[in-house]
Structures are given as structure tokens and as C-alpha cells.
Computed example of a mutant assay.
Amino acid sequence: MAEMDFPSGKNIRLLVVESDETLVEQIYAYLEPLGYDLDRAANGLLGWQRAASGAYDLLLVDVMLPGMDGLTLCRRLRSESGSEVPVIMITSSESVESRVLCLNWGADDFLVKPFDMLELEARVRAVVRRARSQRTSRMLSWAGLELDPQTHTAACDGKPLHLRPIAFTLLARLMRAAPNVVTRKELELEIYGDSPPDSDALRTHIHLLRKALENAGKPVLKTVSHVGFRLEESAG
């Protein structure tokens, strides 16, 4: 496996918002020895209060929570506090609709129960690495689209373009290559590192990005059959 930009969980503070005691114990038993700084909230309301403090590098949130469900927690975090802290949602449903709902409500990634702790840590590493790299990358501009990875803001023809973090990362990668093709494998490596999910989660993220661009009047994201995706300036 390729070397990560941080070899352990040191300096990564993670809030686990989960009511299942057994699952919480498993997460702590696996991540704490790796150096992660863990905190826990047993219900959605407490999770919201702690998450809003801005003290965490990543949130791990179950969809089904007492007090306040995980989707509401994530939505309030994005809309009320304006927080961009990465969120990995835990869900019991494997449906595409459930995954899209999690992403639309502000999650950056999701895990379907039951999941292996090895996969959990790989997802945490990938999401945190992506969030850190976005804060240090330079401004991107292409065909009326502008992205500032440092402030994690985007604009289309001078108007704000609101994107979730994974969609932002995908668009940044496509803009760097435009108008050339970026393969599916390259995009998966960009968002998942060396541990892509078994499911075709990339399709969901591409769908959300394409919809956001079309709603902004920029239907520039095109599929190159059996290869990958590209941005076409003349698309219309």
C-alpha cells in the first residue's frame, strides 16, 4: 500500500456519534491504539452540540440516532453553522436512494453496516487527507468555473456554486485535466486513495456533480464511454 501523508491517527480528532454501544467499543478498540483522539456522543442532539464546536477533524455519524437523526444533524451543521468538517455517515441501507440522501444532506462519504474496521480507517484517512489537501491547493479556473481549494469555495460565471466536498474534489481533478479525459480509476484514487469501496459509489458522486453543474447552467461534464469523464467547454 502506498505511503500516506500521515502514517498514524495522531493529530486526528474524531467524533463518533453513535448509540450502539457494541459498535462504539469496536471503533475505540481499533482506532485508539493507532493514535486517533476519539470523542463520543450517544445521541444526535449531543452530537450536534459537540460537532458545532469545530473541534474535530472528522465526524462519524449514524443515520439512526435518538434525539436527532444523523441526516438532520448533518444538515444543521452545514446550513446553520456553515461547518465544512468532513462527515462519514453510517447507514444500514445499501440502496442508491439512501446513499444519495446522505450526500445531499451534507455527508462526504458513507459506510454500510456491517463494515470492517480496516475499511473504516481507510475511509477516515482518505476523507481527512482530501480535506487537508483542499486547504492547501491553489485556485483553479476553467471555462467560467472557479474553485478555491484553500477556502473550499466555487463559482460559476461569478455566481456561488455550492458543492459537497467529494463533488468539489472531483471537479477540481477534472478542471486540472480539462479538456482531457480523467479515467474512473484516477477519480476513485483521488477521492478514496488506495481503498475504493466495493460498490460503484463514484457513479453517485458524478451524478450529483453533473446535476449541480447543469443547475448552474454549465452542462459541461461528459461521460466518455468505458473510459471516464471530461469537461467540454463547448457543451451546451
Results as ranks from 00 to 15, higher is better:
A178I: 05
R130E: 04
K185M: 07
L140V: 06
P7I: 03
W48R: 15
R132H: 03
A55K: 14
P86I: 03
V61Q: 01
A172V: 00
L208H: 02
L118T: 15
D5G: 09
D69C: 01
A29C: 10
W142I: 02
V100Y: 12
S234G: 08
M64E: 06
T153R: 09
P197L: 03
K185W: 10
L208D: 03
I191W: 07
I191K: 05
M64A: 12
Y56G: 09
R210H: 08
G228I: 06
E119P: 12
A42R: 14
I88S: 04
G158E: 07
E32H: 04
L73Q: 01
R184G: 11
D108V: 07
M139V: 15
S195C: 13
D37A: 14
N104G: 11
G82Q: 12
D57S: 02
G193S: 12
D148A: 09
V63P: 03
G144W: 00
E97P: 07
K185Y: 11
V16N: 13
D108L: 05
V128I: 05
L174W: 02
V85Y: 06
D69N: 05
M68Q: 14
L14Y: 06
T22G: 09
E119C: 14
I27E: 09
P149E: 08
A29W: 12
L208C: 05
R138S: 15
T183A: 00
G47V: 04
R13F: 07
N43G: 12
P114W: 00
R129I: 02
E188C: 07
T22I: 13
W105P: 07
N43A: 10
C102W: 04
E97H: 10
C156D: 04
P179S: 01
C156L: 02
L208I: 10
Q26G: 10
A154Y: 02
E84C: 13
E97D: 15
A235T: 00
L38T: 01
K113W: 08
S53T: 14
L187D: 11
E3R: 09
L163C: 05
F110T: 09
L171W: 01
Q134K: 04
F110P: 06
V16C: 13
R125I: 09
L111G: 03
L120N: 08
D57K: 01
G67L: 05
S133T: 06
Y56L: 09
W142C: 03
W142R: 01
R135P: 04
A51Q: 12
L71K: 05
A41P: 08
A201S: 11
E84D: 15
G70P: 05
S199R: 10
A55L: 14
M68D: 13
N11T: 10
D109S: 06
D200R: 11
W142F: 08
G82D: 12
R75A: 15
G9D: 02
I166T: 10
E84P: 09
K10L: 14
M68V: 08
D116T: 14
R50K: 15
E214C: 08
T72M: 02
